[in-house]
Amino acid sequence: MSLKALPLVLIIGGLVWIGAEYAENRKRPSRLKVPAETELSTVSGKAIDARVIERKAQKNVLASRFSELDIKSPAGVVTVRVGDPHSERVLAGLSGETVTAKYDPNDDKAVFSLSTPSRQVITYRDTAAYKHKLAESNSGGYTAGWIAVALGFAGLWISRKLR
């Protein structure tokens, strides 16, 4: 690749990066949002089933892994999702126990807090802290894209000045 093409590659790559970040944020706007504890929905009842779900992408590559927990409440069975930072091990031994789950209905019913009458299995504080760290690490996506675009334009400007 010639040095004249490098600025164009940086500009195009930066714009693609920005577009990908925008599309991901638009597809799942709540993925990086940490709801207040008062915004969460609550379900209480008997834990009747827990299972591990593995979603695979093309070529049978693991795309995501999380656990689901079915809770039989007076209103019916509610399925909530237990994902990062918690593993399926936190659900071990919950079958048949009375549980209370606080979950985000806008984010695939992701559990933020799970408790039994005798213990706190998942705490809101731990889940929220993990999601805050995830949001901070993803916040650089737009910045990296704009830096690539700026470097590309700077490269074009410098190459024109050197002619």
Score class of each variant (00 low, 15 high):
79 T>H: 12
43 V>P: 01
102 K>F: 11
118 S>I: 08
20 A>Q: 09
50 A>F: 04
130 Y>Q: 04
153 F>K: 04
154 A>L: 14
127 T>R: 09
104 D>T: 03
121 V>N: 02
92 A>N: 13
140 G>Q: 10
43 V>T: 04
133 K>N: 10
24 E>W: 06
68 E>Q: 05
145 G>P: 00
95 S>F: 11
91 L>T: 07
39 E>Q: 10
149 V>A: 09
59 K>E: 14
70 D>A: 14
113 S>C: 03
4 K>G: 08
127 T>I: 05
59 K>G: 07
71 I>G: 03
105 P>Y: 03
79 T>W: 10
143 T>V: 13
153 F>Q: 04
53 I>Y: 03
116 T>F: 06
132 H>S: 12
147 I>E: 01
161 K>F: 09
131 K>H: 13
44 S>W: 10
41 S>P: 00
126 D>V: 12
103 Y>G: 03
81 R>P: 00
39 E>V: 03
3 L>H: 06
146 W>K: 01
46 K>H: 10
163 R>T: 13
143 T>R: 06
124 Y>D: 10
100 T>C: 03
78 V>F: 15
124 Y>R: 10
61 V>H: 05
104 D>A: 07
138 N>H: 13
145 G>H: 01
55 R>Q: 11
133 K>A: 13
26 R>G: 04
82 V>P: 02
30 S>T: 09
92 A>R: 12
11 I>F: 06
70 D>N: 10
53 I>S: 04
148 A>H: 00
42 T>N: 07
163 R>C: 07
35 P>Q: 09
42 T>Y: 06
121 V>P: 00
159 S>H: 12
102 K>M: 09
28 R>N: 12
14 G>S: 08
86 H>P: 01
8 L>T: 12
113 S>P: 00
11 I>P: 00
